[in-house]
Design a protein around this nucleic acid. Structure first.
Length: 565
RNA sequence: GUCCCAGUAGCUCAGCAGGAUAGAGCAACAGCCUUCUAAGCUGUGGGUCGCAGGUUCGAAUCCUGCCUGGGACGCCA
């Protein structure tokens, strides 16, 4: 990672090191960014070297101000024990703006992952159930991580590991046979199937024979009973149709829809491998992999009755994916309640001798709560995502009608803004935080929201349109106090992307965009950008650079940026 | 009982491989649209950073204990 900033840091470190007679790498590690803008751009705290040099930190800082000089440094000053440096705004901003405008959309891209594959397992809704808010989280986080990973040069493989297998399908099939109506299901598949599912659980509370029948139908399904399979296929197909509506709205596409059922006939191979490695032991009638040497509970592979479990399935899937994609990294975007499961899974794979298991990561996220508690599908306490999205789009439309009645493509823009609000709301906070479900919060368009960022972008685009001149051919530096924070933020974009990649944390980018938009809106409010003076080209270069970075940042989050709104 | 995660402004959250005056947004109040999109900007009020110890020149940030909330802990996924 180069850039003028790093360069300035190095120059500063070398100067300080020379004056103090210590190594420059030692100094470089200590240089930091001051907490407040009025304290400068780079700071060197003198505490640590005080003992070594037998001088007080204050003295060291003061001495440095007399000695350190360089064209890159506009001003240096001692503030107590800190040696603070103000960078040459013109030089730095010119360099940064040239870089951003020169690289365009590629600004912040990296070659780090070139030639390597990353498999991302995300979204993974359950067939015949509504697309829940929890699945929304997995979907938008996964999609964003895929974008980020690609920005880092990797090839992404997006897998939707559909929940299309399990006892619940036996129950659902039986419920359908008892009370189902083909026409109703065709007209409104998810809603109707959920209705059957909820009814089944209600009635099963009084009549336990229903559970037995459900299990029996699941067994039939596994054994390939034609009626069971036919119904299962139908449910799956109708569900996928419904899901694809949501994926279209969110702009998400997958490379594979291989769900749990896909691995049904592949599990014996995995079990045989476990046996060959001598990893399976019998415990209370079940086959398990003992993990006590890792201080973890055993991983259950086969039930007493010989049936397989999700660990078996995930194991099989991991091996299959490694064979199919030869991934260099695998990411599972799954709720944090499954942390133990993934810990176990990765360790079992390692015990099987797979070195690649070290490059598998569970990326957990918090719940979406209702009244402080997890929402339950069984009780029918679901908020339908599609309804929420439609509502957001509708609200965006109202805003447009009110604020820009002459806008072309109103519906298209309303969609971008409504969907943007929903996605941004989900991505702006740390993944692991639980979120209390609040429609009001999701539909907010002011303050720290997606539409606020989009609005900032639209403002920038509007200025660029009105300028009616080529931008980028004439770029010198800016040195006013309002553009400076923007320049510094633009400079940090590549590093922000890198951190979000390292932490698998899209919120890092979301927060960055809020900060950038805030600085830009302050600038916009204070500086007349289109004033026809000798600096206009430089200001326009700044506006253009901001628009490039906001658009690209939003793209990494999976959000579109309208040029007018 | 064991393990994991969280506790910062009235609310939602930043800040946490230690650093200088703990920051945004929402809500409240007061301003700013004959000039680049007011989905914006400016200002005011609002804090024992869960509690108690410890490490350090320095702790919201690291360590220990406790309290509170959430989650996981073998035949669900």
């Amino acid at each position: 990672m180069g850039g003028i900033w790093m360069n300035s840091k190095k120059v500063l470190a070398e100067h300080i090191a020379f004056e103090l007679g210590v190594s420059s790498s030692e100094v470089l590690d200590l240089i930091e960014v001051p907490k407040h803008d009025n304290l400068g751009d780079l700071a060197f705290p003198c505490f640590t070297l005080a003992q070594k040099l037998k001088q007080s930190p204050e003295e060291i800082a003061k001495n440095l101000t007399e000695k350190v000089q360089h064209p890159l440094f506009e001003k240096v000053e001692a503030k107590g024990p800190f040696f603070n440096v103000f960078l040459n705004k013109k030089m730095v901003s010119q360099e940064v703006l040239k870089t951003v405008l020169g690289e365009g959309n590629n600004y912040g891209s990296s070659q780090e992952g070139i030639g390597q594959n990353v498999v991302l397992d995300f979204s993974s809704p359950n067939i015949a159930k509504p697309f829940s808010m929890g699945h929304l989280r997995s979907t938008v986080i996964g999609q964003s991580l895929a974008n980020i990973v690609e920005k880092m040069g990797y090839q992404s493989v997006k897998i939707n590991y559909l929940g299309d297998h399990g006892t619940q399908f036996g129950k659902l099939i039986y419920a359908y046979l008892l009370w189902g109506d083909e026409e109703k299901v065709k007209a409104n598949p998810i809603k109707e199937l959920l209705h059957l599912y909820v009814r089944f659980h209600e009635e099963a509370e009084d009549d336990s024979s229903l559970d037995d029948e459900g299990r029996a139908w699941f067994k039939k399904l596994e054994d390939g009973d034609s009626e069971a399979v036919k119904l299962w296929k139908w449910f799956r197909e109708e569900s996928l149709k419904e899901f694809s509506k949501i994926y279209d709205l969110l702009g998400v596409e997958f490379d594979s829809y291989n769900g749990e059922a896909f691995y049904n006939d592949k599990m014996t191979k995995a079990i045989d491998l476990l046996k060959e490695n001598g990893l399976l032991t019998t415990s209370e009638g079940a086959e398990v992999v003992d993990l006590s040497d890792y201080e973890l509970p055993p991983s259950l592979i086969q039930k007493q009755d010989g049936a397989t479990l999700y660990a078996t399935r995930d194991l099989t899937a991991a091996i299959h994916r490694q064979e199919a994609y030869e991934f260099d990294q695998a990411i599972y975007v799954v709720g944090h309640e499954q942390s133990l499961h993934f810990n176990q899974l990765f360790i079992v794979l390692e015990k099987m001798g797979y070195q690649w298991a070290k490059h598998m990561h569970h990326v957990p996220f918090g719940f979406i709560l209702k009244n402080g508690k997890k929402m339950s599908t069984r009780k029918g306490e679901v908020v339908l995502l599609e309804v929420v999205i439609q509502e957001a789009i509708e609200l965006a439309k109202q805003n447009i009608d009110e604020k820009s009645p002459y806008l072309e493509d109103k519906d298209e823009v309303a969609k971008m803004v409504g969907v943007g609000a929903i996605i941004f709301h989900d991505l702006k906070n740390e993944r692991l935080n639980n979120i209390e479900f609040s429609l009001g919060e999701m539909l907010r368009f002011e303050g720290n929201t997606g539409p606020y960022i989009q609005y900032t972008y639209a403002r920038a685009c509007s200025i660029i349109r009105k300028a009616e001149r080529a931008i980028g051919s004439n770029v010198a530096g800016l040195d006013d106090p309002y553009s400076w924070p923007i320049v510094k933020q633009l400079e940090s974009f590549p590093n922000v992307i890198y951190i979000s990649f390292r932490e698998y944390e899209p919120s890092v980018i979301a927060k960055y965009l809020i900060d950038l938009a805030q600085s830009f809106n302050k600038y916009y409010g204070q500086v007349k950008i289109l004033e026809a003076d000798e600096m206009i080209d430089y200001r326009l270069a700044l506006v253009k650079a901001v628009s490039i970075v906001i658009k690209e940042g939003l793209r990494l989050l999976g959000i579109q940026a309208p040029e007018k709104m």
